[in-house]
Write a protein that binds this DNA or RNA. Sequence first.
DNA 1: GCATTATTTGCGTGATTGGTTAATTAGTCA
DNA 2: TGACTAATTAACCAATCACGCAAATAATGC
Lengths: 127, 127
Amino acid sequence: MRARGGWRIIRGVQCLAVISMENLTPEAMEQVAAYFRALSEPTRLAILNLLREGERNVGELAQLCSCSPANVSRHLSLLSQHGLVRREGRGTAVYYRIADDSVYALCDLVCGNIARRYQRSQPFPGV
Amino acid sequence: MRARGGWRIIRGVQCLAVISMENLTPEAMEQVAAYFRALSEPTRLAILNLLREGERNVGELAQLCSCSPANVSRHLSLLSQHGLVRREGRGTAVYYRIADDSVYALCDLVCGNIARRYQRSQPFPGV
DNA sequence: GCATTATTTGCGTGATTGGTTAATTAGTCA
DNA sequence: TGACTAATTAACCAATCACGCAAATAATGC
């Protein structure tokens, strides 16, 4: 992967900014696709949404999104594999928290795209 | 739907993030998931990448990404359904172009997330 | 109309995925 | 150690998906 723009300073923070998807190898492209795939499931989006306010354990998340603990655990495992959430066992429970806030920026960006798209024809469904 | 935030800079990418994913109905959440699903396939990402430089017809895209025209046509149909590309027939050919440049901001943002993740452990695969 | 080229669509197939249930593992406390 | 709770994993099923192939559709020129 070529870092176009490379490292730059944004508001005093050194960031690896403006990486482009161009000229990626097939393996890297698959990584990007897999990242999007992790976000392509309503239940996983709901879980990420629930973690906005802070950490939660598996049982809490299962109750809040009306899923079985087994199901939630698997979703969390997948999210963890892609670095979206961080795992921390405390006692018999396992707490999960967001690993990178930029996920919300991504989701909100997509929300905006969809909303703008619907504003040209019909209102955004379920607003 | 509440408009909040407006333009913001996320890791060097200017984004119109007016909308938040919070408090979405299940149907709206499914829309967001479907949008991500459209981006969760390497071939579709490759097609979007090829359209960076301008419009292309189905045959050209098929040749450039080593896929069958039928396959490419199907991918384009799906991308079109989600408002990612725009269709325009000219002669017997059908040309597609990017409908919204913000897709690239999304993809590049994800590239950055993955690259940062790998920098902590191993180099990004396929650099 | 007929032939040609480009695109789309119908259908079958193998692979992947989300969900459920049950078994297993991990941690705590008596 | 044994009982108990929470989380993970395995096995399985149903649904979805990407792809290949072939048929159908659309647009152009003879």
